[in-house]
Design a protein around this nucleic acid. Structure first.
Lengths: 210, 210
DNA sequence: GCCCATCTTGACACGCAGTGCCATCATGAG
DNA sequence: CTCATGATGGCACTGCGTGTCAAGATGGGC
């Protein structure tokens, strides 16, 4: 990955592909935001990105997947964060910490993130697609939780994994409703607070953080 | 719905349609179990059910939806159960109770239920489809929870709804792994116990209920 | 019995997503 | 310059889902 002075050649392909990929994603998100997801065909996306329809599917396995960006790298962040947790941490805190890290975005990414999440929570096809995409995250979480509590306790691990992702997803939804500010991490934290207390503490009638 | 002696006519249509619908579902599930979901085309299903391809889509909006059966009536059960909860019940208990009722099946339904859930948790397309199907349940739950805690607390309501469905879903998964016995309700209950305690209580190293 | 309104059915055609195949072209190595 | 590698895009195909429409079945009125 880091050859000092040689390999002046190989990167060229990579760079080019990387740029094409970015171009596809950028123009696609714009078209989705403009015309709507379902109203935009893959032909539109390919034409807008200046490539052939067939080539589009070589960069993204499906129209849905454009919205997810480089999902794999996020999955790796999650895996790394889970692996980095100290053995003394409680499983719930381990997952909380990992999902917080996974959902840490730079300030410049928030605009496109808002579009992505808006699409994800709005468009039926994407909502569905997100479910099995995130199921990969669930599997990673389950694996790490099982490593701690023992293979017998699948319900605990599976339940924790699925509810954690659900809490994250709830934070997404509310975050978007609240204007998609820079507080996504805080909302995820808050959602996990609810989860940790088993939703026992009823919200009082005082003002919420809105 | 219950005209004593009149209406000897109208039901005829209904009965016929009901039987066709049941026939489609039965033969479809069998074909899915035999050949696999993706390997079975809608043409196969229609032919096997003795109807035209176009007619198939008049009974079920998509190939996916066959696996869900009469989903709407289950949703109504959920809505009714939520509405029937006493005002003194804690939101979590209200949801637990409602989802238990929603997932109560007769002993004769467990065989087909196992096939359904097996498909739902196994087939990628169905896994995705289930997500937005269940999102209707989430919406119903959110509505009822908000009516109790106040419209301001969307994160609480949304989080509770999504995590509850997630817990149910986890119970499905483990239920199937454990042989799809008559203990689905118990597993849902157990998943809710975990949820209520915020997954705080770590499973000991003793034997699980397997 | 017959006729008509109504609903159901299935055939055809269409658009769109996704895939296999293959000829063409650009790139980098020798 | 030549060759191998890999990216590209056109073409054709399958499969899902939908609009349209003509033909058939059903029930009511006579």
């Amino acid at each position: 990955m880091t050859a000092p002075h040689s390999v002046p050649a190989a990167p060229r392909w990579q760079r080019r592909k990387q740029r094409t990929r970015a171009a596809i994603e950028e123009t696609s998100l714009r078209l989705f935001a403009d015309k709507g997801f379902e109203e935009t065909t893959v032909d539109d996306l390919a034409t807008a990105a200046g490539i052939g329809r067939r080539t589009f599917f070589r960069y993204y396995p499906s129209k849905n997947d454009v919205v997810f960006g480089d999902y794999d790298s996020r999955t790796n962040v999650l895996r790394a964060a889970l692996g980095a947790a100290g053995p003394e941490a409680h499983p719930v805190e381990m997952v909380r910490q990992a999902l917080r890290a996974t959902n840490a975005y730079g300030a410049d990414e928030y605009v496109s993130l808002a579009i992505r999440i808006w699409l994800l929570t709005t468009v039926r096809s994407l909502q569905a697609h997100a479910a099995w995409r995130f199921s990969a995250w669930e599997d990673v979480i389950i694996e790490h939780v099982l490593a701690r509590v023992g293979d017998r306790h699948r319900l605990y691990a599976c339940g924790l994994a699925k509810t954690s992702i659900a809490a994250m997803w709830a934070a997404y939804t509310v975050w978007l409703d609240d204007g998609a500010g820079p507080n996504l991490t805080a909302l995820i934290d808050e959602a996990f607070d609810r989860l940790r207390t088993g939703f026992a503490e009823l919200p009082g009638e005082g003002q919420s953080r809105a």
